[in-house]
């Protein structure tokens, strides 16, 4: 059992690396094409949508932004506030709700979980409609709140956190906290949250990406130019079918993706490094 470096093992290793590299290439190509297209002119793109060779239109594409009053920094700022707010609320309250579902034995627990599951199966869009109407009525258009606060109730994240907690939570830890005299809320914040780091990082990435790329609801709610998010700004570049500034659109898409990379790389260490479950070891 100890002699695992036999020849088939080596072949196996080669297979692993080859497939990983192939998959990696497959993942990177579209980004590469997108970035290359950001440097190409609209007509170059029209006559040849896919190219691997950069061109020289980067600055003229950027100039299109100015003509369309597209300010990427304003877009970044707005998108950042919304996405960060929504992500923090979503992971924190989902963890709390999941903890309530796993750690406590209460009468309506099963019913509540079933409710969350049912809610999750309704296409999320169905919910957003009346929500929009409601926001319109109470005058919350052109506000970030309707894009941030609903993240408190994120059924899919709760479901994930619950599944994760069931697999990992040992109530001994909770108890040791109680013996030390800590309050329930304190235990959650100080003991449970650190245990959940990998799950939180995972869901934070997903939540951030979803919020960052979200286009429809912001585009309807935020009609004031100074509040526009990145995806809204890009849609302004599209205009109608015969006048799309493709080069600028790709540049906009590239700029939009960059912050996502940063967030992803920052959070991915929790996924990659395999942060040990601090609380478990006694």
């Amino acid at each position: 059992m100890r002699h695992e470096t036999t020849i088939p093992q080596k072949i196996y290793k080669v297979i692993i690396y080859v497939s990983c590299i192939l998959l990696a290439i497959l993942s990177i190509i579209p980004f590469y094409i997108m970035i290359v297209n950001a440097t190409r002119g609209t007509y170059e793109i029209q006559s040849n949508a896919i190219s691997l060779i950069p061109s020289k239109f980067l600055s003229s594409n950027y100039k299109v932004f100015e003509g369309k009053s597209f300010n990427p920094f304003v877009g970044f700022y707005n998108s950042f506030i919304i996405s960060t707010g929504a992500t923090v609320l979503s992971v924190y309250f989902s963890s709390l709700t999941a903890y309530a579902l796993v750690a406590y034995n209460w009468k309506l627990r099963q019913a509540f979980f079933t409710f969350i599951m049912a809610v999750m199966m309704v296409p999320g869009q169905l919910l957003s409609v009346g929500f929009y109407q409601f926001m319109y009525r109470i005058g919350w258009t052109n506000s970030y709140l309707p894009l941030i606060l609903p993240a408190i109730a994120a059924p899919m994240t709760v479901f994930f956190m619950r599944q994760y907690l069931i697999g990992t939570l040992s109530l001994d830890i909770v108890n040791s906290g109680r013996i030390d005299g800590a309050g329930e809320f304190h235990i959650f914040n100080r003991i449970i949250l650190p245990i959940m780091k990998p799950a939180i990082a995972t869901q934070a990435i997903f939540a951030f990406v979803a919020s960052w790329n979200n286009y429809f609801m912001p585009s309807i709610l935020l009609t004031n130019k100074s509040k526009y998010t990145m995806p809204i700004m890009i849609s302004q570049l599209k205009g109608d079918i015969y006048k799309t500034e493709y080069g600028a659109v790709y540049l906009g898409l590239t700029l939009t993706v960059l912050p996502l990379f940063l967030v992803y790389f920052a959070l991915s260490k929790y996924i990659i490094a395999g942060v040990a479950l601090g609380g478990v070891k006694e």
Binding site: I220, G239, I241
Partner: peptide, 11 residues
């Protein structure tokens, strides 16, 4: 006060 929404996504 301009509101410009592209037709491309049906929105």
């Amino acid at each position: 006060n301009e509101t410009i929404i592209a037709t491309t996504d049906g929105l």
